[in-house]
Design a protein around this nucleic acid. Sequence first.
RNA 1: GCUCCCUUCGUCUAGCGGUCCAGGACGCUGCCCUCUCAAGGCAGAAACACGAGUUCGAUUCUCGUAGGGAGCGCCA
Length: 473
Amino acid sequence: MTIRTRFAPSPTGFLHVGGARTALFCWLHARANRGAFILRIEDTDLERSTPESVQAILDGMDWLGLDCDEGPFYQTQRFERYAEVADRLLNEDKAYLCYCSRERLEKLRKRQMDAGIKPRYDGKCRHLESTPEDIKPVVRFSNPKIGMVSFNDLVRGRISISNTELDDLVIARPDGSPTYNFTVVIDDMDMQITHVIRGDDHINNTPRQINIYQALGAEAPVFAHVPMILGSDGARLSKRHGAVGVMQYRNDGYLPQAVLNYLVRLGWSHGDQEVFSRDEMVSLFSIEDVNRKAAAFETDKLDWLNQHYMKVLPTAEVADHLAWQFADQGINPEAGPALENVVSVQAERVKTLRDMAVQSRVFFEDYVEFDPASAKKHLRLVAEHPLESVLAKLEALEDWSVEPLHQVIDDVATELDLGMGKVAQPLRVALTGSGVSPSIDKTLWLMGKRRSLDGIGRALKFIQARRSENVQG
RNA sequence: GCUCCCUUCGUCUAGCGGUCCAGGACGCUGCCCUCUCAAGGCAGAAACACGAGUUCGAUUCUCGUAGGGAGCGCCA
Protein backbone atom coordinates (compact mmCIF):
# COMPACT_ATOMS: atom_id res chain seq x y z
CA MET A 1 0.00 0.00 0.00
CA THR A 2 1.38 3.40 -0.84
CA ILE A 3 1.89 5.76 1.99
CA ARG A 4 -0.33 8.80 2.07
CA THR A 5 0.09 11.69 4.48
CA ARG A 6 -1.72 14.95 4.79
CA PHE A 7 -1.23 18.36 6.27
CA ALA A 8 -4.52 19.83 7.45
CA PRO A 9 -4.23 23.40 8.69
CA SER A 10 -7.17 25.58 9.56
CA PRO A 11 -6.97 28.92 7.80
CA THR A 12 -7.27 31.25 10.75
CA GLY A 13 -3.89 32.94 10.35
CA PHE A 14 -0.53 32.58 8.66
CA LEU A 15 1.52 29.40 8.55
CA HIS A 16 3.49 29.47 11.77
CA VAL A 17 6.70 27.57 12.40
CA GLY A 18 4.99 24.85 14.40
CA GLY A 19 2.61 24.11 11.55
CA ALA A 20 5.44 24.40 9.07
CA ARG A 21 7.41 21.75 10.89
CA THR A 22 4.42 19.44 11.04
CA ALA A 23 3.94 19.99 7.34
CA LEU A 24 7.62 19.28 6.79
CA PHE A 25 7.44 16.00 8.67
CA CYS A 26 4.35 14.96 6.74
CA TRP A 27 5.99 15.92 3.48
CA LEU A 28 9.21 14.10 4.37
CA HIS A 29 7.42 10.97 5.45
CA ALA A 30 5.58 10.88 2.16
CA ARG A 31 8.65 11.64 0.07
CA ALA A 32 10.87 9.26 2.02
CA ASN A 33 8.46 6.45 1.29
CA ARG A 34 7.64 7.44 -2.27
CA GLY A 35 4.12 8.14 -1.12
CA ALA A 36 1.71 11.00 -1.61
CA PHE A 37 1.41 14.25 0.33
CA ILE A 38 -2.02 15.79 0.50
CA LEU A 39 -3.01 19.29 1.55
CA ARG A 40 -6.39 19.80 3.12
CA ILE A 41 -7.75 23.09 4.33
CA GLU A 42 -9.92 22.64 7.42
CA ASP A 43 -12.13 25.64 7.01
CA THR A 44 -15.31 24.48 8.68
CA ASP A 45 -15.11 27.30 11.19
CA LEU A 46 -16.80 29.88 9.01
CA GLU A 47 -16.34 32.55 11.65
CA ARG A 48 -12.59 32.46 11.75
CA SER A 49 -11.51 31.12 8.38
CA THR A 50 -10.45 33.63 5.78
CA PRO A 51 -9.29 33.41 2.16
CA GLU A 52 -6.31 35.55 3.11
CA SER A 53 -5.21 32.92 5.58
CA VAL A 54 -5.60 30.21 2.97
CA GLN A 55 -3.35 32.20 0.68
CA ALA A 56 -0.86 32.85 3.48
CA ILE A 57 -0.59 29.13 4.16
CA LEU A 58 -0.19 28.33 0.48
CA ASP A 59 2.50 31.01 0.20
CA GLY A 60 4.35 29.64 3.18
CA MET A 61 4.29 26.09 1.86
CA ASP A 62 5.41 27.32 -1.51
CA TRP A 63 8.30 29.32 -0.10
CA LEU A 64 9.52 26.30 1.82
CA GLY A 65 9.11 24.13 -1.24
CA LEU A 66 6.66 21.73 0.38
CA ASP A 67 4.75 20.74 -2.71
CA CYS A 68 1.69 18.57 -2.43
CA ASP A 69 0.56 15.82 -4.73
CA GLU A 70 -3.15 16.27 -4.16
CA GLY A 71 -5.24 19.17 -3.04
CA PRO A 72 -5.70 21.60 -1.60
CA PHE A 73 -9.05 20.17 -0.63
CA TYR A 74 -11.52 22.30 1.26
CA GLN A 75 -13.78 20.90 3.91
CA THR A 76 -16.43 23.49 3.24
CA GLN A 77 -16.96 21.79 -0.11
CA ARG A 78 -17.66 18.45 1.50
CA PHE A 79 -20.56 19.29 3.77
CA GLU A 80 -22.90 17.00 1.88
CA ARG A 81 -20.59 14.09 2.47
CA TYR A 82 -20.42 14.77 6.21
CA ALA A 83 -24.18 14.99 6.43
CA GLU A 84 -24.50 11.74 4.56
CA VAL A 85 -22.20 9.93 6.98
CA ALA A 86 -23.96 11.45 9.98
CA ASP A 87 -27.26 10.15 8.64
CA ARG A 88 -25.78 6.76 8.15
CA LEU A 89 -24.57 6.67 11.75
CA LEU A 90 -28.01 7.82 12.90
CA ASN A 91 -29.71 5.09 10.91
CA GLU A 92 -27.37 2.48 12.24
CA ASP A 93 -28.03 3.64 15.75
CA LYS A 94 -24.42 4.62 16.23
CA ALA A 95 -25.36 8.22 16.78
CA TYR A 96 -28.39 9.97 18.21
CA LEU A 97 -30.10 13.30 18.39
CA CYS A 98 -29.50 15.36 21.49
CA TYR A 99 -31.83 18.11 22.64
CA CYS A 100 -29.96 19.20 25.71
CA SER A 101 -29.66 22.92 26.15
CA ARG A 102 -26.32 24.59 26.56
CA GLU A 103 -27.45 25.69 29.99
CA ARG A 104 -28.00 22.14 31.11
CA LEU A 105 -24.61 21.15 29.73
CA GLU A 106 -23.00 24.03 31.58
CA LYS A 107 -24.54 22.99 34.86
CA LEU A 108 -23.61 19.39 34.30
CA ARG A 109 -20.04 20.32 33.62
CA LYS A 110 -19.82 22.45 36.70
CA ARG A 111 -21.33 19.80 38.91
CA GLN A 112 -18.86 17.24 37.63
CA MET A 113 -15.89 19.53 38.09
CA ASP A 114 -17.01 20.28 41.63
CA ALA A 115 -17.29 16.59 42.31
CA GLY A 116 -13.71 16.19 41.14
CA ILE A 117 -14.43 14.12 38.09
CA LYS A 118 -13.73 14.72 34.45
CA PRO A 119 -16.58 16.63 32.82
CA ARG A 120 -18.39 14.70 30.11
CA TYR A 121 -21.81 14.36 28.61
CA ASP A 122 -24.04 12.07 30.65
CA GLY A 123 -25.91 10.50 27.75
CA LYS A 124 -29.31 11.83 28.71
CA CYS A 125 -30.63 11.86 25.15
CA ARG A 126 -29.16 8.54 24.19
CA HIS A 127 -32.41 6.70 24.72
CA LEU A 128 -35.07 9.34 24.50
CA GLU A 129 -38.75 8.35 24.60
CA SER A 130 -40.24 11.46 23.13
CA THR A 131 -38.58 14.16 21.05
CA PRO A 132 -39.22 17.82 21.74
CA GLU A 133 -40.79 19.56 18.74
CA ASP A 134 -39.44 23.03 19.08
CA ILE A 135 -35.73 22.33 19.58
CA LYS A 136 -33.26 21.74 16.77
CA PRO A 137 -31.04 18.91 18.01
CA VAL A 138 -27.36 18.24 17.60
CA VAL A 139 -26.09 14.83 16.59
CA ARG A 140 -24.01 12.94 19.08
CA PHE A 141 -21.83 9.97 18.41
CA SER A 142 -22.54 6.95 20.60
CA ASN A 143 -19.17 6.25 22.08
CA PRO A 144 -18.62 2.72 23.42
CA LYS A 145 -19.25 2.59 27.14
CA ILE A 146 -16.77 -0.06 28.03
CA GLY A 147 -13.34 -1.23 26.98
CA MET A 148 -10.11 0.45 26.11
CA VAL A 149 -8.92 2.30 23.05
CA SER A 150 -5.31 1.61 22.35
CA PHE A 151 -3.07 2.63 19.50
CA ASN A 152 0.57 2.45 18.65
CA ASP A 153 1.86 5.95 18.09
CA LEU A 154 4.91 6.05 15.85
CA VAL A 155 6.68 8.56 18.04
CA ARG A 156 5.16 7.89 21.47
CA GLY A 157 4.72 4.20 21.46
CA ARG A 158 1.60 2.57 22.86
CA ILE A 159 -1.08 4.91 24.16
CA SER A 160 -4.17 3.58 25.85
CA ILE A 161 -7.24 5.18 27.31
CA SER A 162 -10.38 3.78 28.80
CA ASN A 163 -13.70 4.41 27.07
CA THR A 164 -15.10 5.51 30.39
CA GLU A 165 -12.95 8.62 30.00
CA LEU A 166 -14.65 9.47 26.74
CA ASP A 167 -18.14 10.81 26.17
CA ASP A 168 -20.65 11.09 23.35
CA LEU A 169 -19.24 13.93 21.35
CA VAL A 170 -21.25 16.19 19.10
CA ILE A 171 -20.60 15.43 15.45
CA ALA A 172 -23.12 17.80 13.90
CA ARG A 173 -24.53 21.12 15.07
CA PRO A 174 -28.23 22.07 14.94
CA ASP A 175 -27.71 23.61 11.50
CA GLY A 176 -26.21 20.36 10.30
CA SER A 177 -22.63 21.63 10.09
CA PRO A 178 -20.10 19.00 11.14
CA THR A 179 -17.55 19.30 13.92
CA TYR A 180 -13.84 18.75 13.82
CA ASN A 181 -13.44 15.24 15.22
CA PHE A 182 -16.02 14.03 12.73
CA THR A 183 -14.68 15.73 9.62
CA VAL A 184 -11.09 14.62 10.13
CA VAL A 185 -12.13 11.02 10.36
CA ILE A 186 -14.28 11.14 7.26
CA ASP A 187 -11.69 13.03 5.27
CA ASP A 188 -8.78 10.87 6.30
CA MET A 189 -10.88 7.84 5.51
CA ASP A 190 -12.09 9.12 2.14
CA MET A 191 -8.66 10.36 1.17
CA GLN A 192 -7.16 7.06 2.20
CA ILE A 193 -4.63 8.63 4.50
CA THR A 194 -2.35 5.95 5.87
CA HIS A 195 -0.35 8.06 8.30
CA VAL A 196 -1.69 10.92 10.35
CA ILE A 197 1.22 13.08 11.49
CA ARG A 198 0.12 16.01 13.61
CA GLY A 199 0.83 18.00 16.75
CA ASP A 200 0.67 16.20 20.08
CA ASP A 201 -2.16 18.47 21.17
CA HIS A 202 -4.28 15.98 19.25
CA ILE A 203 -3.30 12.95 21.28
CA ASN A 204 -6.39 13.26 23.40
CA ASN A 205 -8.63 13.41 20.34
CA THR A 206 -7.22 10.26 18.83
CA PRO A 207 -9.10 7.63 20.85
CA ARG A 208 -12.48 9.13 20.06
CA GLN A 209 -11.56 9.37 16.41
CA ILE A 210 -10.55 5.74 16.46
CA ASN A 211 -13.98 4.89 17.83
CA ILE A 212 -15.59 6.72 14.96
CA TYR A 213 -13.46 4.81 12.46
CA GLN A 214 -14.68 1.62 14.06
CA ALA A 215 -18.31 2.67 13.94
CA LEU A 216 -17.80 3.40 10.28
CA GLY A 217 -16.23 0.03 9.72
CA ALA A 218 -13.04 1.63 8.53
CA GLU A 219 -9.51 0.88 9.52
CA ALA A 220 -7.84 3.69 11.42
CA PRO A 221 -4.63 5.13 9.99
CA VAL A 222 -1.32 4.97 11.80
CA PHE A 223 -0.79 7.95 14.07
CA ALA A 224 2.36 9.89 14.85
CA HIS A 225 2.11 12.80 17.25
CA VAL A 226 4.99 15.20 17.07
CA PRO A 227 5.81 17.49 19.97
CA MET A 228 5.03 21.16 20.02
CA ILE A 229 7.52 23.94 19.51
CA LEU A 230 8.16 26.22 22.46
CA GLY A 231 9.29 29.81 22.46
CA SER A 232 12.75 30.66 23.77
CA ASP A 233 11.12 31.32 27.14
CA GLY A 234 9.91 27.74 27.33
CA ALA A 235 6.28 28.65 26.85
CA ARG A 236 4.25 27.40 23.94
CA LEU A 237 5.05 29.30 20.80
CA SER A 238 2.57 32.05 20.17
CA LYS A 239 2.11 35.39 18.52
CA ARG A 240 3.91 37.21 21.25
CA HIS A 241 7.12 35.41 20.38
CA GLY A 242 7.38 37.65 17.36
CA ALA A 243 8.29 36.27 13.98
CA VAL A 244 6.46 32.99 14.15
CA GLY A 245 4.86 33.33 10.74
CA VAL A 246 6.97 31.51 8.21
CA MET A 247 6.89 34.33 5.71
CA GLN A 248 8.19 36.66 8.35
CA TYR A 249 11.44 34.73 8.18
CA ARG A 250 11.61 35.44 4.49
CA ASN A 251 11.10 39.10 5.24
CA ASP A 252 13.76 39.02 7.92
CA GLY A 253 16.31 37.66 5.49
CA TYR A 254 16.38 33.93 6.04
CA LEU A 255 16.82 31.39 3.27
CA PRO A 256 14.17 28.69 3.01
CA GLN A 257 16.93 26.08 3.14
CA ALA A 258 18.04 27.41 6.51
CA VAL A 259 14.54 27.47 7.95
CA LEU A 260 13.86 23.97 6.67
CA ASN A 261 17.14 22.66 8.04
CA TYR A 262 16.54 24.30 11.37
CA LEU A 263 13.01 22.99 11.59
CA VAL A 264 13.91 19.44 10.69
CA ARG A 265 16.55 19.32 13.43
CA LEU A 266 14.01 20.51 15.95
CA GLY A 267 12.81 17.18 17.19
CA TRP A 268 14.47 14.99 14.62
CA SER A 269 18.05 13.93 14.33
CA HIS A 270 20.30 11.60 12.47
CA GLY A 271 23.32 10.94 14.63
CA ASP A 272 25.50 14.00 14.93
CA GLN A 273 24.65 15.46 11.56
CA GLU A 274 23.54 19.08 11.61
CA VAL A 275 23.37 20.11 7.99
CA PHE A 276 20.95 18.42 5.64
CA SER A 277 20.21 19.19 2.05
CA ARG A 278 16.65 18.62 0.97
CA ASP A 279 17.65 15.36 -0.70
CA GLU A 280 19.45 14.18 2.41
CA MET A 281 16.42 14.92 4.53
CA VAL A 282 14.27 12.85 2.24
CA SER A 283 16.65 9.92 2.16
CA LEU A 284 17.46 9.92 5.87
CA PHE A 285 14.17 10.93 7.45
CA SER A 286 12.23 8.45 9.50
CA ILE A 287 9.23 9.49 11.55
CA GLU A 288 10.23 7.02 14.22
CA ASP A 289 13.40 9.00 14.90
CA VAL A 290 11.37 12.01 15.94
CA ASN A 291 11.84 13.03 19.55
CA ARG A 292 9.10 12.97 22.13
CA LYS A 293 10.10 16.14 23.90
CA ALA A 294 8.84 19.60 23.04
CA ALA A 295 11.64 21.77 21.67
CA ALA A 296 12.38 25.44 22.15
CA PHE A 297 12.87 27.64 19.11
CA GLU A 298 16.21 29.45 19.38
CA THR A 299 17.14 31.96 16.74
CA ASP A 300 20.88 31.65 17.36
CA LYS A 301 21.15 28.33 15.63
CA LEU A 302 18.89 29.45 12.80
CA ASP A 303 21.24 32.39 12.30
CA TRP A 304 24.19 30.08 12.10
CA LEU A 305 22.48 27.84 9.56
CA ASN A 306 21.39 30.83 7.55
CA GLN A 307 24.91 32.13 7.29
CA HIS A 308 26.12 28.66 6.51
CA TYR A 309 23.78 28.42 3.55
CA MET A 310 24.61 31.92 2.39
CA LYS A 311 28.22 30.80 2.25
CA VAL A 312 27.82 27.40 0.62
CA LEU A 313 24.86 27.76 -1.73
CA PRO A 314 25.63 28.87 -5.30
CA THR A 315 26.05 32.65 -5.23
CA ALA A 316 23.53 33.06 -8.01
CA GLU A 317 20.87 31.33 -5.92
CA VAL A 318 21.59 33.44 -2.87
CA ALA A 319 21.66 36.52 -5.06
CA ASP A 320 18.10 35.83 -6.17
CA HIS A 321 16.94 35.96 -2.59
CA LEU A 322 19.07 39.01 -1.95
CA ALA A 323 17.31 40.80 -4.78
CA TRP A 324 14.09 40.58 -2.79
CA GLN A 325 15.77 42.26 0.13
CA PHE A 326 17.15 45.00 -2.09
CA ALA A 327 13.65 45.72 -3.30
CA ASP A 328 12.41 45.66 0.26
CA GLN A 329 15.11 48.09 1.35
CA GLY A 330 14.56 50.32 -1.65
CA ILE A 331 18.07 49.83 -3.00
CA ASN A 332 18.54 49.84 -6.76
CA PRO A 333 20.57 46.73 -7.61
CA GLU A 334 21.49 48.25 -10.98
CA ALA A 335 23.46 51.05 -9.35
CA GLY A 336 26.37 48.94 -8.17
CA PRO A 337 28.20 45.64 -8.46
CA ALA A 338 26.57 42.36 -9.46
CA LEU A 339 24.62 40.87 -6.55
CA GLU A 340 26.55 37.65 -6.91
CA ASN A 341 29.72 39.55 -6.10
CA VAL A 342 28.07 41.14 -3.12
CA VAL A 343 27.08 37.68 -1.88
CA SER A 344 30.55 36.28 -2.35
CA VAL A 345 32.03 39.03 -0.21
CA GLN A 346 29.32 39.60 2.38
CA ALA A 347 28.09 36.10 3.14
CA GLU A 348 30.68 35.49 5.81
CA ARG A 349 30.02 38.82 7.45
CA VAL A 350 26.29 38.77 8.11
CA LYS A 351 23.67 36.44 9.52
CA THR A 352 20.78 37.41 7.29
CA LEU A 353 20.09 38.63 3.78
CA ARG A 354 18.49 41.69 5.23
CA ASP A 355 21.70 42.58 7.02
CA MET A 356 23.51 41.90 3.81
CA ALA A 357 21.33 44.34 1.93
CA VAL A 358 21.57 46.99 4.62
CA GLN A 359 25.33 46.71 4.88
CA SER A 360 25.78 46.69 1.13
CA ARG A 361 23.84 49.85 0.48
CA VAL A 362 27.07 51.82 0.40
CA PHE A 363 28.14 49.99 -2.75
CA PHE A 364 25.02 51.19 -4.52
CA GLU A 365 24.49 54.66 -3.15
CA ASP A 366 26.99 57.34 -2.11
CA TYR A 367 27.11 57.63 1.64
CA VAL A 368 25.63 60.81 3.02
CA GLU A 369 28.28 61.77 5.50
CA PHE A 370 31.26 60.39 7.40
CA ASP A 371 30.62 58.61 10.64
CA PRO A 372 31.92 61.32 13.01
CA ALA A 373 33.90 59.02 15.29
CA SER A 374 35.55 57.16 12.42
CA ALA A 375 36.35 60.34 10.57
CA LYS A 376 37.83 61.91 13.65
CA LYS A 377 39.96 58.90 14.32
CA HIS A 378 41.20 58.07 10.84
CA LEU A 379 40.89 61.10 8.59
CA ARG A 380 43.83 62.90 10.15
CA LEU A 381 46.53 64.94 8.54
CA VAL A 382 48.84 61.94 8.53
CA ALA A 383 46.40 60.15 6.29
CA GLU A 384 46.56 62.74 3.57
CA HIS A 385 49.69 61.56 1.92
CA PRO A 386 48.76 57.87 1.88
CA LEU A 387 45.35 58.69 0.46
CA GLU A 388 46.82 60.86 -2.25
CA SER A 389 49.22 58.13 -3.11
CA VAL A 390 46.45 55.54 -3.27
CA LEU A 391 44.34 57.88 -5.35
CA ALA A 392 47.08 58.35 -7.90
CA LYS A 393 47.68 54.65 -8.26
CA LEU A 394 44.01 53.82 -8.49
CA GLU A 395 43.40 56.41 -11.15
CA ALA A 396 46.04 54.73 -13.23
CA LEU A 397 44.78 51.22 -12.55
CA GLU A 398 43.03 49.56 -15.43
CA ASP A 399 42.21 46.12 -14.12
CA TRP A 400 39.78 46.84 -11.31
CA SER A 401 39.84 43.46 -9.64
CA VAL A 402 40.78 42.21 -6.22
CA GLU A 403 44.37 41.13 -6.91
CA PRO A 404 45.69 44.34 -8.43
CA LEU A 405 43.70 46.40 -5.95
CA HIS A 406 45.35 44.58 -3.12
CA GLN A 407 48.70 45.19 -4.77
CA VAL A 408 48.09 48.92 -4.86
CA ILE A 409 47.45 49.12 -1.12
CA ASP A 410 50.42 46.91 -0.44
CA ASP A 411 52.67 49.06 -2.59
CA VAL A 412 51.61 52.28 -0.92
CA ALA A 413 52.19 50.81 2.52
CA THR A 414 55.64 49.62 1.54
CA GLU A 415 56.64 52.81 -0.22
CA LEU A 416 55.60 55.00 2.67
CA ASP A 417 56.90 52.51 5.18
CA LEU A 418 53.53 52.23 6.89
CA GLY A 419 51.59 49.30 8.33
CA MET A 420 48.59 48.12 6.38
CA GLY A 421 46.30 49.58 8.99
CA LYS A 422 47.62 53.07 8.48
CA VAL A 423 46.64 52.93 4.87
CA ALA A 424 43.57 50.74 4.97
CA GLN A 425 41.64 52.38 7.77
CA PRO A 426 41.67 55.93 6.39
CA LEU A 427 40.89 54.51 3.00
CA ARG A 428 38.00 52.52 4.42
CA VAL A 429 36.48 55.62 5.93
CA ALA A 430 37.05 57.47 2.68
CA LEU A 431 35.28 54.79 0.70
CA THR A 432 32.40 53.89 2.92
CA GLY A 433 32.13 56.72 5.41
CA SER A 434 32.51 54.25 8.26
CA GLY A 435 35.18 52.24 10.00
CA VAL A 436 33.67 48.85 9.21
CA SER A 437 33.56 47.14 5.84
CA PRO A 438 34.89 44.06 4.06
CA SER A 439 38.64 43.73 3.59
CA ILE A 440 39.92 46.81 1.87
CA ASP A 441 40.69 45.22 -1.48
CA LYS A 442 37.22 43.72 -1.73
CA THR A 443 35.65 46.93 -0.58
CA LEU A 444 37.38 48.75 -3.42
CA TRP A 445 36.35 46.05 -5.82
CA LEU A 446 32.67 46.21 -4.94
CA MET A 447 32.76 49.98 -4.74
CA GLY A 448 33.88 50.33 -8.31
CA LYS A 449 36.36 52.83 -9.66
CA ARG A 450 34.20 55.92 -9.92
CA ARG A 451 32.71 55.66 -6.44
CA SER A 452 36.10 54.82 -4.94
CA LEU A 453 37.84 57.79 -6.49
CA ASP A 454 35.00 60.08 -5.44
CA GLY A 455 35.20 58.82 -1.87
CA ILE A 456 38.92 59.44 -1.61
CA GLY A 457 38.36 62.91 -3.00
CA ARG A 458 35.77 63.61 -0.32
CA ALA A 459 38.11 62.37 2.38
CA LEU A 460 40.94 64.51 1.12
CA LYS A 461 38.69 67.58 1.20
CA PHE A 462 37.66 66.69 4.71
CA ILE A 463 41.28 66.51 5.82
CA GLN A 464 42.13 69.78 4.14
CA ALA A 465 39.21 71.48 5.82
CA ARG A 466 40.43 70.11 9.07
CA ARG A 467 43.90 71.55 8.50
CA SER A 468 42.60 75.03 7.86
CA GLU A 469 40.59 74.79 11.05
CA ASN A 470 43.75 73.88 12.88
CA VAL A 471 45.59 76.79 11.30
CA GLN A 472 42.87 79.15 12.37
CA GLY A 473 42.71 77.64 15.79
C1' G B 1 -10.15 18.59 39.58
C1' C B 2 -9.78 14.35 36.14
C1' U B 3 -7.25 11.86 31.91
C1' C B 4 -3.19 11.60 28.60
C1' C B 5 1.81 13.04 27.39
C1' C B 6 6.88 14.79 28.45
C1' U B 7 11.88 15.24 31.54
C1' U B 8 20.50 14.36 29.02
C1' C B 9 24.94 20.81 28.99
C1' G B 10 21.67 27.79 28.57
C1' U B 11 19.42 25.75 23.62
C1' C B 12 18.94 21.66 19.68
C1' U B 13 20.42 16.77 20.35
C1' A B 14 23.60 11.54 20.37
C1' G B 15 22.89 7.56 23.57
C1' C B 16 18.55 2.20 22.25
C1' G B 17 22.17 -2.25 30.07
C1' G B 18 28.64 -2.34 30.47
C1' U B 19 32.07 1.15 24.90
C1' C B 20 29.70 7.34 29.26
C1' C B 21 34.10 10.40 35.30
C1' A B 22 28.24 11.00 28.85
C1' G B 23 29.58 12.57 22.37
C1' G B 24 28.21 16.50 18.55
C1' A B 25 26.10 21.35 17.23
C1' C B 26 24.54 26.53 18.38
C1' G B 27 25.66 30.05 21.91
C1' C B 28 29.38 31.53 25.60
C1' U B 29 34.80 32.29 27.37
C1' G B 30 40.08 32.40 26.12
C1' C B 31 44.03 32.15 22.55
C1' C B 32 45.75 32.35 17.34
C1' C B 33 45.12 34.77 12.60
C1' U B 34 44.32 40.00 11.17
C1' C B 35 43.70 46.55 7.49
C1' U B 36 38.17 47.29 10.65
C1' C B 37 34.10 43.93 11.35
C1' A B 38 33.45 39.19 10.39
C1' A B 39 34.83 34.36 8.89
C1' G B 40 38.33 30.54 10.12
C1' G B 41 41.64 27.50 13.49
C1' C B 42 42.64 25.75 18.46
C1' A B 43 41.38 25.29 23.59
C1' G B 44 37.78 25.60 27.64
C1' A B 45 33.45 25.93 30.99
C1' A B 46 28.68 23.52 30.72
C1' A B 47 23.85 18.12 31.43
C1' C B 48 21.80 12.30 32.62
C1' A B 49 15.19 16.31 37.61
C1' C B 50 14.73 13.36 42.39
C1' G B 51 13.80 8.65 45.04
C1' A B 52 13.05 3.56 45.17
C1' G B 53 13.43 -0.97 42.68
C1' U B 54 15.09 -4.89 38.56
C1' U B 55 20.20 -6.36 37.47
C1' C B 56 26.74 -8.55 38.56
C1' G B 57 26.03 -3.54 36.32
C1' A B 58 21.77 1.71 35.03
C1' U B 59 21.65 7.84 31.27
C1' U B 60 19.50 3.48 29.09
C1' C B 61 14.14 -1.11 32.04
C1' U B 62 9.86 -0.63 36.08
C1' C B 63 7.33 2.15 39.77
C1' G B 64 6.71 6.50 42.56
C1' U B 65 7.72 11.98 43.55
C1' A B 66 8.54 16.74 41.64
C1' G B 67 8.28 19.95 37.54
C1' G B 68 6.31 21.04 32.64
C1' G B 69 2.70 20.44 28.59
C1' A B 70 -1.97 19.02 26.38
C1' G B 71 -7.04 17.68 26.49
C1' C B 72 -11.72 17.59 29.11
C1' G B 73 -16.37 22.75 23.50
C1' C B 74 -22.37 22.84 19.28
C1' C B 75 -12.88 25.59 17.99
C1' A B 76 -9.84 23.19 14.79
